[in-house]
Design a protein around this nucleic acid. Structure first.
Length: 552
RNA sequence: GCCGUGUUGGUCAAUCGGUUAAGACGCCUCCCUUUCACGGAGGAAUGACGGGUUCGACUCCCGUACAUGGUACCA
């Protein structure tokens, strides 16, 4: 296999570029199977195969941050290397299937600006792309493994499995279905061929399990973690084909990655412990030379405490965890998404890209094109990263500031749906005035409602703090002057204001804040004269008079 | 319990064995702004612990602690 070394990694590179040397660091006394003897911890591209990666979610609910980031890294890697990005739906567990989830996942990708080259909706040469539709494919491989002696048929019922686990567990080990216990179970290893055939003829439900051979050490090179080793004696005989004829994840990923010619497989770190099963499957099926390079991505952790970020954490701490709104069709439970919270898709993906990966530059704001250009798998971190909602909002604010007003106006529409009709020209002007103080699109109305509707309440206490006969007379006069003002521009409005300040001898600071409160209701917003100009002379005068009436 | 993986400020993080250990978010101070932001200038705050290897260790090795993932006919 021709390989090309891209970059080395710092903290993990060490002085052991030679793989065999690295292995000697382990106290290994058992036979060792090594997979892909690439130089320790180097990102490798097989230069005689087109890069093909896949995102393979199971449609069981909303797509959370970790999922979107996995898609992103897949996509960035594929584009960076001019390869293909495939979406494959892993719906082998019919009991967990949730209607609408698949559609939702595809919409999320679309929102994020990630378009698969092949997917259930865009079938390529390796269709179908739903594992449920590929069901007939898998059995032959499971049976091949049985014939080869790498797998066997097991008839044990759920109760029998439970009893076995109870009986054989010890203080130091959870009982597993493995080399120590399979001899006590009802399977094609313990039963005679006649007994097995008899059971099969009676349509007894059975599964096919991989036969793990104890006493070996498995080593493979993870693109992010370097050499990872496992003791085969500690891995259980995983079910490969379920009683309903569906493959488990373990069989399905291997078969599909092989058939779909996947070259690089990215998945969450939670899969690392089952990697030995997949490695062995690739080997037993005779496909070892075509096995993809693995990359087990670090987890995204909850902001407080420890542990994997979950939907519950978002609910508890008040931030979204799903990309878009998701309603569970069974419980009707609704979960807010980043989109509906007012995130721009490019801010969302930029933020996610930086959570577990770093370009090495000081730059933090990257367009998708720049991410594609800079992304490299060897700069993905090994440790999990805590999600920080404040930083996420900062990314969004950066994008709001640099997005043009017309696009913001379009993006704002869903948030303005219940606000009555708003003139688009007026909206564009107001966006220009308030965009600097928005972190989320959903904050627009809080920041700008007074441009469109008269504030229902005003901060009367703040107003009263500055209130006296002099200020009262000032505003009565101001309202009159404004009523007669011909040219209604910020400069003209301010000029009149300044003239009156000079005439009355009042301190400008005594009346600036009151004017603001009269117009917007509180101590916030852009320049008062810009606001007055925007809402119009009649409205300005009425708001002043309204406040005056309230104060008397 | 066992196995795997990880550990630089509160958070995200840079560092190809030699640096005053970058930068960003958040926080604090000041400037700008007669509001709030934006912007600008500063500030506090970091190598889990213990051993090695080395002239020199955040970086390599070993151990400990802590965290996290797995331990299903779920993915």
């Amino acid at each position: 296999m021709n390989t090309k070394v891209l970059v080395k990694n710092r903290h993990t590179t060490g002085k052991t570029p030679d793989f065999s040397q690295y292995l000697s660091c382990f106290k290994i006394t058992m036979p060792v199977w090594t997979f892909r003897q690439v130089p320790y911890l180097c990102a490798v591209i097989m230069d005689n195969r087109k890069v093909r990666v896949r995102f393979a979610p199971s449609p069981t609910g909303g797509l959370h941050l970790g999922g979107v980031r996995t898609v992103l890294y897949n996509y960035l890697f594929a584009r960076h290397h001019g390869g293909d990005f495939i979406l494959r739906i892993e719906d082998t567990d019919q009991s967990r299937f949730v209607p609408g989830a698949e559609d939702y996942i595809m919409q999320c990708l679309e929102w994020c600006g990630i378009e698969p080259d092949e997917s259930p909706l865009k079938p390529g040469p390796y269709a179908p792309y739903r594992q449920s539709e590929r069901k007939p494919l898998y059995r032959q491989y499971a049976e091949q493994l049985v014939r080869q002696g790498n797998a066997y048929i097991a008839f044990d019922t759920a109760e029998e499995l439970e009893a076995m686990r109870e009986q054989y567990k010890t203080e130091h080990h959870n009982a597993q279905y493995d080399s120590r216990t399979r001899g006590f179970m009802r399977n094609s290893l313990t039963l005679s061929p006649e007994e097995v055939n008899a059971l099969l003829e009676k349509n007894t439900p059975y599964v096919i399990r991989i036969k793990m051979q104890p006493g070996e050490t498995l080593v493979f090179t993870d693109m992010i973690r370097g050499a990872v080793s496992f003791d085969t004696g500690l891995v259980d005989d995983k079910v490969l084909l379920k009683a309903d004829g569906m493959p488990t994840y373990h069989l399905a990923v291997v078969v599909d990655d092989y058939l779909m010619k996947i070259t690089h497989a990215f998945r969450g770190e939670e899969w690392l412990p089952s990697a030995p099963v997949h490695l062995l499957l690739w080997k037993y099926l005779g496909w070892e030379a075509e096995m993809p390079l693995w990359a087990h991505l670090p987890l995204i952790l909850k902001p407080d405490g420890n542990g994997k970020l979950s939907k519950r954490d978002g609910d508890r701490l008040g931030f979204p965890v799903f990309a878009m709104d998701w309603t569970d069709p069974r419980s009707n439970e609704q979960t807010t998404g980043f989109r509906e919270r007012g995130f721009l898709p490019e801010a969302f993906t930029n933020m996610l890209a930086m959570l577990g990966w770093n370009s090495g530059l000081e730059q933090e704001i990257f367009s998708m094109e720049e991410l594609v250009q800079h992304f490299s798998i060897d700069r993905v971190h090994k440790g999990g990263a805590k999600f920080d909602y404040e930083k996420a909002k900062w990314f969004n604010q950066q994008y709001i500031q640099k997005t043009d007003n017309a696009r913001l106006a379009a993006l704002l529409q869903p948030f303005l749906a219940d606000k009555g009709t708003i003139d688009n020209g007026q909206l564009l002007t107001v966006i220009g005035l308030v965009k600097d103080r928005m972190h989320l699109l959903s904050e627009f109305w809080d920041q700008a409602s007074y441009f469109f509707v008269r504030p229902e309440t005003i901060d009367i206490a703040a107003l009263q703090a500055k209130w006296n006969d002099k200020t009262y007379r000032f505003f009565v006069a101001l309202a009159e002057k404004y009523a007669g003002l011909g040219e209604w521009t910020p400069a003209a409005i301010e000029a009149v204001f300044n003239e009156l300040v000079a005439e009355t001898g009042i301190k400008k600071g005594e009346v600036m804040l009151p004017l603001r409160i009269m117009l917007v209701g509180g101590k916030f917003g852009p320049g008062v004269f810009d606001i007055a100009a925007q809402i119009g002379s009649g409205e300005t005068k009425e708001r002043i008079n309204g406040a005056l009436a309230r104060l008397q």
